[in-house]
């Protein structure tokens, strides 16, 4: 992972402080399933969380077209984890925006503190996604990671096959095509996240 030693402020940013706090908060929660939802901005992380938890999170995750709809970079007291549906969820902000640069995010995000990492991808794989996948593989976290291609209702079977081939070449874990609109793939994600048998 490349780092840019220049222009890093001596004072930690709000994002950096929040990421450190996230690690601390997770450390004191025993024996509960911890799930992180990760991805580019607008990939559909918050909408997925809302569906996974049957809209039972309080407050509901912030779904919207606005960039940084979910932000950990502005409020030092931002809510980072939410207990709901019997698990602890981190609905992470999209990485790679000006408020959430991928570098700082990947460096401090406590990947290992989670039992499940759900990486949501919309459109094409970006450099940041690729770096994250490589990081996950190197850290031996592949087994607890699922790659979710969102907005899959617009894909033809040929396109899905092409994407499955591409994902397979870059990631050894499970891959699911999912759509918030028609709910396809949601059951697979639920099973993975909660270790539930099919309903």
């Amino acid at each position: 992972m490349s780092r840019q030693p220049t222009n890093r402020p001596a004072e930690p940013t709000v994002l950096e402080r929040n990421l450190r706090r996230l690690a601390a908060e997770l450390a004191v929660i025993p024996r509960q399933r911890k799930v992180a939802i990760l991805g580019q901005p607008g990939a559909g992380k918050s909408a997925l969380l809302d569906l996974l938890t049957d809209k039972s999170c309080d407050p509901r995750p912030s779904v919207g077209q606005r960039t940084d709809a979910t932000s950990w970079a502005h409020d030092p007291g931002a809510m980072l984890i939410r207990p709901c549906s019997g698990a602890i969820f981190a609905d992470s902000p999209g990485y790679g925006t000006s408020a959430h640069p991928a570098d700082a995010f990947f460096k401090l995000f406590p990947f290992r503190s989670f039992d499940r990492l759900v990486l949501v991808i919309k459109d094409k794989l970006h450099a940041a996604d690729d770096r994250l996948l490589i990081g996950i593989a190197r850290s031996g976290l592949t087994e607890r990671t699922m790659l979710v291609r969102s907005f899959a209702d617009g894909l033809t079977p040929e396109e899905k096959a092409a994407l499955a081939g591409e994902f397979g070449g870059r990631f050894a874990g499970p891959v699911v095509f999912y759509s918030a609109r028609d709910r396809s793939g949601l059951a697979d994600i639920e099973r993975f996240v909660f270790d539930r048998e099919a309903r």
């Binding site: 901005p41 077209q65 606005r66 960039t67 940084d68 709809a69 790679g96 925006t97 640069p101 459109d123």
Partner: peptide, 11 residues
């Protein structure tokens, strides 16, 4: 663009 704004777009 087809989603949210990325740092690269704004810059």
């Amino acid at each position: 663009f087809a989603g949210k704004f990325h740092e690269a777009d704004t810059a």
